[in-house]
């Protein structure tokens, strides 16, 4: 069987006669050896083997410097507590349950705020993304409000909602709306036009078009928004708790700060960081559960 490319008639690709070529072929050819690099042994592979060791080197050095400078008396404990005393403080706080209670209260605030904010963000993003009228009504308003730094709202929320949990949750919710909204809107609008054409060709109803084509394919973007929002919810949590908090991680840290207990302050900071890690883990889990069809997730 012959396979011919019909776009190009035979003879058109002028195959020059051999006699015309020698001049070009006479010049010396500079060949470079490409095989050598591929098989290059040693240095890189060696580096890769001790990669984890290398990565841990600087943090370990910093930790040692920290311990040494504090225990040698170069830095007074009121400025920076030693790693050892931070660990002890953590142990004590866990032993009397204070840390767990504070963590539960704070995580509860962050989660409640996040759920409310993300819910509003997704809803607004869908309304603006799916309906032209919705976009006109919602988008410009939210884009305008987005420019307000949410921390600037704290004093107002204190006046409106007092000093309990409410102003903190509202602040976190407000902060979470925008990343979720923006990514939901972009996700809905970013669904491949060619897929929408498939829906039109096959005469799908608007409802089926939305549920089978638009929403599932906007979901990755929505999750990106939620991931951002989770980070921001922690930021808002810290900001909100440093003002007028009577319970939670923020209260623990602020009290310790007033008593110049830097060991407890550092415990608080570390716990905030661990919360951030946990949040990231949750998002990854969500992505794995909700997006089984994405190539990256299948491979990992």
């Amino acid at each position: 069987m012959t396979v011919q490319d019909s776009r190009c008639a035979p003879g058109e690709l002028g195959r020059g006669s051999p006699a015309a070529e020698p001049a070009a072929l006479a010049a010396p050819l500079d060949l470079t050896d490409l095989s050598r690099r591929r098989n290059a042994p040693g240095r890189r592979a060696g580096l890769r083997r001790i990669r984890w060791l290398l990565r841990g080197l600087v943090p370990a050095a910093l930790l040692i410097a920290w311990q040494w400078s504090t225990s040698a008396g170069l830095v007074p404990p009121t400025t920076l507590a030693s790693p050892k005393s931070v660990l002890e403080a953590a142990r004590d706080l866990i032993a009397d349950g204070e840390l767990q209670t504070a963590l539960r209260v704070s995580a509860g605030r962050a989660l409640t705020g996040l759920v409310i904010g993300a819910g509003i963000g997704v809803a607004a993003g869908l309304v603006a993304g799916l309906w032209k009228l919705g976009e006109e009504l919602v988008d410009s308003t939210l884009q305008m409000l987005r420019t307000v730094p949410f921390i600037a709202l704290i004093p107002l929320f204190v006046v409106w909602f007092g000093i309990g949990d409410t102003p903190k949750i509202v602040l976190i919710a407000v902060a979470c709306i925008f990343p979720v909204y923006l990514n939901t809107f972009a996700g809905v609008r970013g669904v491949d036009r060619r897929l929408i054409e498939v829906g039109r060709v096959f005469g799908l109803s608007r409802t089926r078009m939305i549920t089978r084509l638009v929403l599932p394919n906007a979901l990755p973007s929505v999750l990106v928004g939620i991931r951002y929002a989770m980070g921001i919810s922690l930021l808002a949590l810290v900001a909100a708790e440093q003002i007028n908090a009577s319970s939670g991680l923020g209260a623990l840290v602020m009290n310790a700060s007033n008593q110049i207990r830097t060991d407890i302050v550092i415990v608080g900071v570390v716990v905030y960081a661990l919360l951030g890690l946990l949040v990231d883990l949750i998002v990854r889990l969500l992505e794995r559960l909700l997006l089984p069809w994405r190539p990256t997730i299948v491979k990992s």
Binding site: G199, L204, R212, P216, L219, W293
Partner: peptide, 21 residues
């Protein structure tokens, strides 16, 4: 029906669900 230049399958649905679109 149309078959386009590219397959244009719905990435979020398994093959059999795509066929039944």
């Amino acid at each position: 029906s149309v078959v386009f230049q590219e397959p244009r399958l719905v990435p979020s649905e398994r093959v059999w669900r795509n066929v039944l679109l």
